[in-house]
Design a protein around this nucleic acid. Structure first.
Length: 598
DNA sequence: ATAGGGTTAG
């Protein structure tokens, strides 16, 4: 392939007979962009003294560790290259399959000598960057004043952005295109919807869908689009809306992808609407959209996750019908069985899968180790863990977490801590979950100092703490009578915009009561209720107990009323002390209250 | 594409 460049500004490419074999799309865009007459006149860029463009590019090459290639190519083959025009260089570098170098060069020029690239150089470079999936680099090019890519390039840019997960930027581009009256294809819209789902931005799914409706593309909206909408509903826990949408699609004689059905199944499992789950399965079969391994995986997983032993039945049914579960399904069922306390059955499956030639992997080992910990068989858990390590599965944060939290569960915090140290020695990154597990374990063992140290350590490491980093500490602090310390942590949570779980407030209230601070305890209880949080029965009991000791009979009546409204009843021992107290004070419990007591 | 860690809960 030969390239001839003339000083006049025309930039032509002569292709050799075999060039079509090597022509990349990047190259094609170069040829289209540089048609005769299309190329602008050289810019008058003032370079810093004694600097040649070649030197600059050489310099950038050094920084970016790229090889400059012009000695052999540019200088020998293109003697007529216009060395004073940066735009030529841009195109040339780009043509050398080095759009990044080209971009660096462009940035250098514009920051050092107020160079502004011409439209066609930018176009070519932009397309090349988009082609190379370099969405951030392409985006930086858009900052050049006056540069407006062609609509088709922008549509490709959308694809590039969504592949890089930059969905928000992609949505902005849709707006830009709308302004110039360009309508992207349905497939671009669809791909963007999918990308929004992947990054968990269902809000953007709806925004984009609105854009689709506004754009007039509505007639060509297809079953794929609707599938994404259904999935968005499922992701937002509005499964029923998704289901209704499914019904509409089916009525039109269209049938969505299996994955759409699977999402609905997962959603209905989450809501424990198992009749709907089976209805979906029947629809699938009726539509000849046969449930696949992923579907059954979803069903079984969905059932087990809700501790529903039906999952095991479905699994056995499948086997009876000659279905061959894969390793994933075995792992799921083993985990489910461990969760509902059927370790024996889990063990049977472990051997069954091995017998069938399915080799347990790190997932399988992990759930089995978890299972042994759950029933308190620490010896077997360790044995299996070592077996797993022997197979090279050890070095990961998840298996360490399983071990560490398993050991903590049985009070073996020293062993857990030594594993924790081993992790860092082996260079396995400690993440938040590991810290949280240790904090919880240490708090349960009463080792508050060490637990607090770990909280600080994770903060120093720059990890973002979560609600579970604080909860056990607050609980323990309240239990040992340091409610003030607990409240400081609560304030810390608040400052970090972490919403405590309801139980945390219960600990605080009980802590306050134990300190005799019933006034604040009562205030806190009222706050809790105003936040629509349900206090625990115990919390009411502690409060009543504390009020009893202070003879706050009026307050007790208030608390009793609130307690009954939450649907709780009084324990006999409390009734007894209440009756004693009220009769001693020569007071009568109001009738209403008495009725509720009995 | 599907599975694994903590969070709830004695």
């Amino acid at each position: 392939m030969k390239m001839s460049v003339r000083r006049s500004g025309t930039f032509l490419l002569q292709t050799s007979p075999h060039s079509h074999l090597v022509a990349s799309s990047r190259f094609r865009s170069l040829t289209t962009e540089t048609k005769q007459g299309d190329y602008p006149s050289p810019t008058q860029t003032q370079l810093p003294k004694d600097q040649k463009l070649t030197d600059i590019v050489d310099e950038i090459c050094k920084i970016t560790r790229t090889k400059p290639r012009w000695e052999n190519t540019l200088l020998s083959q293109y003697p007529s290259f216009n060395f004073s025009d940066p735009n030529f260089f841009l195109l040339y570098l780009n043509h050398q399959n080095n759009s990044f170098l080209s971009l660096r060069f462009l940035h250098w020029l514009s920051s050092h000598c107020s160079f502004s690239p011409d439209q066609s150089s930018c176009n070519v470079l932009f397309d090349a960057l988009v082609d190379a999936e370099a969405c951030k680099a392409a985006k930086s090019l858009l900052d050049y004043p006056g540069f407006t890519p062609k609509p088709a390039s922008l549509e490709s840019y959308i694809r590039c952005l969504i592949n890089g997960g930059m969905v928000e930027d992609a949505l902005d581009v849709f707006v830009t295109l709308k302004k110039v009256g360009f309508l992207p294809s349905v497939s671009t819209f669809n791909a963007s919807l999918l990308a929004c789902l992947k990054v968990g931005r269902t809000d953007l799914v709806w925004t984009l869908y609105e854009r689709m409706l506004e754009s007039g593309i509505v007639a060509s909206i297809d079953v794929e689009t609707v599938g994404y909408l259904i999935k968005a509903f499922c992701a937002e826990n509005k499964v029923f809306n998704g289901y209704e949408l499914l019904r509409q699609v089916l009525d039109k004689g269209l049938c969505p992808d299996n994955t759409v059905f699977n999402s609905l199944i997962a959603g209905f499992c989450k809501e424990r609407q198992y009749t709907r789950v089976s209805e979906i399965l029947h629809i699938m079969i009726a539509m000849k959209c046969n449930p696949d391994i992923y579907t059954y995986q979803e069903v079984i997983n969905g059932l087990f996750k809700r501790k529903n032993a039906e999952g095991f039945r479905v699994f056995n049914d499948l086997k009876d019908r000659g279905y061959f579960p894969d390793r994933v399904m075995y792992t799921t069922v083993i985990k489910g069985l461990c969760d509902i306390g059927l370790l024996g059955e889990a063990r049977k499956l472990w051997f069954e899968m091995i017998q069938k030639g399915l080799v347990p992997n790190e997932y399988t080992y992990n759930v089995m180790v978890y299972g042994y910990f759950k029933i308190g068989d620490l010896v077997e858990a360790r044995k299996l863990y070592e077996d797993m390590c022997g197979r090279g599965y050890s070095e990961n944060a998840v298996s360490y977490t399983t071990m560490i939290s398993g050991l903590c569960l049985h009070g073996r915090t020293d062993e857990a801590l030594s594993l924790f140290r081993e992790m860092s020695e082996k260079g396995v990154a400690c993440d938040l979950i590991i810290y949280n597990s240790l904090i919880k374990g240490l708090c349960q063992k009463g080792k508050l100092v060490k637990a607090t140290d770990l909280l600080n350590e994770l903060l120093v490491k720059g990890l973002e703490p979560s609600v579970s980093s604080f909860t056990p500490l607050i609980k323990r602090l309240c239990e040992v009578g340091d409610t003030e310390g607990a409240m400081r942590l609560l304030k810390d949570m608040h400052d970090r915009h972490l919403e405590p779980i309801a139980g945390t407030h219960d600990y605080i209230i009980i802590g306050l009561c134990k300190e005799g601070n019933f006034v604040q305890g009562m205030e806190w209880l009222l706050n809790m209720l105003s936040w629509k949080l349900k206090p625990k029965e115990q919390t009411f009991e502690h409060l009543i107990d504390s009020l009893l000791q202070e003879d706050r009979l009026d307050d007790i009546l208030v608390v009793l009323d609130l307690m009954f409204r939450e649907g709780y009843r009084l324990k006999e021992s409390i009734i007894h002390s209440l009756v004693c107290k009220f009769s001693k004070e020569n007071l009568h419990l109001p009738n209403l209250c008495l009725e509720e007591l009995v």
